[in-house]
Design a protein around this nucleic acid. Structure first.
Lengths: 153, 153
DNA sequence: TATTCGTGTATATTAATTATCTATGGATAT
DNA sequence: ATATCCATAGATAATTAATATACACGAATA
């Protein structure tokens, strides 16, 4: 069970935007070349972040992407769900239906319980992600070094 | 981020074995046909469960698979890890290295923090799975109906 | 009016999952 | 003994999702 690479890529981009002075917009080709992915692929990921209200896109000369909200209002769950969607880790019951077809109804309820437990575990995972924001990540970086960074150069 | 089908298949098989009277061994071809997968594929999954010490294989006429331990000693985490292994949801840092190469060391530590948070969330997920056993699932099934089931028929 | 994002489509590559078939060898109950 | 069934392994295939690129036209704006 692996998390999409795009989630990590997104988080790194957000860190980059977060340390950009004055939240000045940074161009696609600069960010994508830093990530070493094509601008085309990069924009597909950024689109998801934009739709989720995490970044703002500015179409203009001197345009680019910037953060849409303060750092402490962007949780890791926001980013995760923006990229991965809200699908559950498991989505089935079809299997249970196949197996217990013809046998006791009460056994079928056992698999329903399985789904409930996995859903419960999934919620625990997501709650942890919701507990942390980009600001928490940035708090591990020294103030001085942040002021010195301009990704547009 | 999706859980392997094999995890759900395994749980269903364990439920079937759990309600089998006297923990009598059930043959591969019976279980695999119930799951509607080939016996060959089914055995590959069962092998993982056997290596994890969850089921016992009996090679003999009147052989088959049975549970290796009491129901309450088989957690959902045991099953999950038997099938999915112990890989983390995210495994990288390579990306961080690529991006922050040439820029400040302190920024790199931001991505380390990201990995730590995701690992934390993953542990929360796994802890929930460890909190439940096959016995918990079975507790949702009436005693009477369990006594009536013989999967070997 | 040049620059840059927005959107959409088509396509390619890679990797993992899911799955089957076959075949040889080993354990054991009767 | 021998039939039955698991153990292991290798080759192969289908399906799906993730990852990725290229291209083209439209829209916003400094």
């Amino acid at each position: 069970m692996k998390m999409s690479q795009a989630v990590e890529q997104s988080l790194v981009v957000l860190i980059m935007l977060a340390v950009q002075q004055d939240n000045a917009p940074v161009k696609s080709h600069i960010l994508s070349s830093r990530l070493e992915v094509s601008e085309s692929y990069f924009k597909k990921t950024m689109r998801k972040l934009r739709i989720a209200g995490i970044v703002t896109a500015i179409a203009s000369k001197e345009g680019g992407f910037k953060l849409a909200r303060p750092l402490h209002q962007i949780t890791l769950l926001d980013v995760y769900e923006a990229i991965e969607g809200e699908d559950s880790f498991i989505h089935s019951t079809q299997l249970a239906d196949r197996i217990f077809k013809g046998s006791d109804e009460l056994v079928k309820s056992g698999t329903k319980e399985v789904l409930a437990i996995i859903y419960d575990a999934e919620q625990a995972f997501k709650q942890k992600l919701a507990d942390y924001t980009i600001a928490d990540i940035l708090s591990h970086i020294g103030e001085e070094s942040i002021e010195a960074i301009d990704w547009r150069e």
